[in-house]
Amino acid sequence: MSVIVRTVSRVVAPVALAFGAYVIMHGHLTPGGGFQGGAVVASVVALLVVAFGCERWRKWTHVLLPLEDVGAMAFVILAFLGVGATFFRNVLAGSGGLFGAPVPQLGPNPGALNTAGTLPLMNWAVGFKVIAGLGAVVLLLALFGREDG
């Protein structure tokens, strides 16, 4: 692509990455979550593929595809944490430990990051899954049809 597109995507890509991380991290407080933030970060992959060509990102598929499985495994393991009561029981909520604080006040409030138990962890697991999965799909579709592609 042209110099303009490459320069603009150099500026936009870090901002979009930070925004995607914010959407995933605050999934239990603000609209969004793992799926949405993962899609934002995967759009950065699409931007880089369009701007800089797909050849230089070829070996990233070997990183992204296992990362997708890691996210899926983390999600299922977090779900199995509560299997003493039921599958998907939120064992960390209200326990006082990691992410175990209660909400600051009932009703509308700005919220605290250290709440909601397993929800933030599950958001990160699903976020990694969507980042790696959608990023790998975009890369594989872009690489398809090249020589030795």
Binding site: H28, T30, G33, F88, A101, V103, M122, K129, V130
Partner: peptide, 29 residues
């Protein structure tokens, strides 16, 4: 009070109806 999450949508998606999310993740996989 139960999930300690301000975002009710996330509380439903990841806690009350976790099975749905698991199916969604399986579709993506």
């Amino acid at each position: 009070t139960e999930v300690a999450a301000n975002n009710v949508v996330t509380a439903i998606v990841f806690d009350y109806r976790g099975y749905d999310t698991l199916g969604e993740a399986t579709v993506l996989f």
